[in-house]
Amino acid sequence: MNFQTMNIDKMKEENINKILVHIVLIIGAATMLIPFIWMILTSLKSFHEATSVPLTIFPKTLKFENYSSVMEALPFMYLYFNTLIMIAARIVCALVFSSMAGYAFARIKFPGSKILFSLVLVQMMVPSQIFLIPQYLIVLKLGWLDSIPALVVPGFVSAFGTFLLMQFFKALPAELEEAGVIEGCSQWQIYGRIMLPLAKSSLIALGIFTALFAWKELMWPLIVNMSLNKLTLAAGLACLVGQYEDITDFSVLMAGAFIAIWPMLLIFVIFQKKFVEGIALTGTKG
């Protein structure tokens, strides 16, 4: 058997493999996409058409009024803005505080660290619903009800972030900080000069996760903020459902859902390479 035929055989095999991979991936992608496509299609149907049997897949006439009526029902500009501010503030808090705490927990042996870190873990194990009322009372005492800062409060510290960054810092080789110790750096300098730059990719990952968690928060904005123009997109959408408590107009709801999610989808699609690369870099030596 000569070298060439072996190569061709291998290439053939690889091609078949690739096709198989594509088929599996396409099936998966379709499953992921269908709900979104159905959302868009439904949002363009009239109520009458959306609730007719048999179903129509494509709207007979495009009913863009669904979009204008949902824009009337919800102040989307405010919602976008509030969501953005809340996410940004939470990211800053999470990155600054969690990286400091995560570093200290991972790399400094200090009395009580185990107990303190277990408190971080405890927070992650408890369903967030039990914090609703105590945190509401804090916001209320601060006089922050119905304001943008109120949206940020539960994200002031991130137990998840502390956990994530602790895991990351722990994986870094010890030589790094020994070099720092020999040079006479303080712990703070080791953290700021040596470790933090290495953690850039983890920080990006944490930033993305914080954004996602904040974006998905539903109950909290509804509890602390009353005005529609102080709510976030997710909460505003929940209010929209409430406005149709008797007759659910799915077309309008789908229009609302689509308006609410497309900016995030777009941001994601544009920056997805950065996102994924950032995450993929996390702790080059996992």
């Binding site: 998966g28 992608a29 709900p35 996602l212 959408l237 799915f250 859902a257 989808l265 994924v276």
Partner: peptide, 19 residues
């Protein structure tokens, strides 16, 4: 593919439940 697979996680839960 990657982009498509990520789409659900960048969608609001209320929107997901609705759809």
């Amino acid at each position: 593919y990657r982009t498509i697979y990520f789409l659900p996680i960048v969608s609001a839960p209320a929107a997901i439940a609705m759809v």
